[in-house]
């Protein structure tokens, strides 16, 4: 029994190289088709995301593995690739897979997306008959470990970027954001990031207001939103549920009295205001108005930093679970090979 992994990830290669080596959906199918032409008695799963490309192989013949690795390298056709590749075998391959599925090997540790990516990679390989008993158990177990780690440790808790903090706060106020509308004042990297995150939650509509209408139009087009002049935007604050401000202005553009009026006009429904500008665009006293929640960029960054800190200790716990499960799997795999298959159940004991 030989378990081999060859891969490249954000830990070993810069983004330009990773982009070249990543497989699209169609390319994965093509590659799997090719892998199937290889001699039988072999299992393979190809995992390709924007942060990693990994090929998992199970073969009884070490030469087969070598050939598969060669296939991958040829497929990449990239000189000087060797220094970016990593290889893992046997138990350490199992450990690696379990920590990948748990999000421990991700750029943002504990992220959820990878769980689905592993699942998809496994399903594709299964559809091409490239998995049998060992890999079926291995990958199903990897997905189970990923879930186990996320429910038993806090690694997946709390938003880690300013944009996702903004989204999670908005969700704590409005719940489902598909009924909320967003009004963005001005432009700026952070403001745009927040807007993009909110858009990804399918907000009802988005308005962009800017001093220069053309700038507003460019951004609005990009977001599929509505462009407004600054004055028109100020006139419509009451119609938005989430207001993001990022305008270069010496004096606040949203004053206490303006916000009182806006709250009156919107029938006191909750309003979430994110002030990203320095100096501030929104008078801080508006935070004391009922049902109005004002956060500035420092607040959002502080929450993100706090979430990151509280994840720290959980990573060790998560790693311990993943490693324990890997050893368990490895013992089972060995017993399988020796003929006396041990019982193997899903449990945390």
């Amino acid at each position: 029994m030989a378990l081999t992994l060859v891969g490249i990830s954000h830990k070993t290669a810069p983004v330009e190289l990773r982009e070249k080596l990543s497989f699209g959906e169609e390319e994965i199918k093509k590659a799997l088709q090719e892998l199937r032409q290889f001699p039988s008695e072999e299992e393979a799963v190809l995992l390709s995301t924007c942060n990693r490309t990994e090929l998992y192989i199970h073969s009884h013949d070490a030469e087969h593995s070598a050939r598969t690795v060669k296939f991958l390298k040829e497929r990449f056709g990239e000189p000087g690739l060797d220094s970016h590749l990593y290889f893992k075998e046997g138990e350490s391959m199992v450990r690696h897979l379990f920590s990948v599925a748990s999000g421990l090997d991700s750029l943002v540790q504990g992220e959820q997306e990878i769980q689905k990516q592993v699942k998809d990679a496994y399903s594709s390989a299964q559809a091409f008959n490239l998995t049998s008993k060992l890999f079926n158990v291995l990958f199903q177990r990897a997905l189970y470990v990923g879930k186990l780690v996320r429910t038993h440790t806090g690694i997946a808790h709390g938003a880690l970027s300013v944009g996702s903090v903004a989204v999670s706060l908005a969700e704590k106020i409005f719940g489902d954001l598909s009924r909320s509308s967003v009004l963005l004042f001005g432009a700026g990297e952070m403001a745009e990031i927040c807007a993009r995150h909110l858009i990804s939650k399918k907000v009802r509509n988005l308005m962009v207001a800017n001093r220069t209408l053309e700038n507003a139009q460019t951004l609005a087009q990009d977001f599929k939103g509505e462009a407004l002049s600054l004055e028109a935007g100020l006139e419509r604050v009451h119609s938005a549920d989430i207001v993001i401000t990022s305008v270069a202005s010496e004096r606040p553009i949203l004053t206490d009295s303006a916000m009182k009026e806006a709250m009156r006009r919107r029938g006191n429904r909750s309003l979430f205001v994110i002030d990203i500008a320095v100096p501030r665009n929104v008078e801080t006293s508006v935070h004391s108005l009922d049902n109005l929640y004002l956060y500035n960029i420092d607040d959002l960054e502080a929450i993100a930093a706090e979430n990151l800190r509280s994840r720290g200790g959980e990573i060790e716990k998560a790693r311990a679970i993943a490693n324990l499960k890997a050893t368990e799997f490895w013992d089972w795999a060995k017993s399988l090979q020796d003929g006396g298959e041990r019982s193997f159940k899903h449990s945390l004991a």
């Binding site: 808790h157 704590k172 106020i173 409005f174 719940g175 502080a302 929450i303």
Partner: peptide, 12 residues
Amino acid sequence: HPGVMSGSLPDL
């Protein structure tokens, strides 16, 4: 600076 409690309570 909403804490852990905010995370487990539903939205307003």
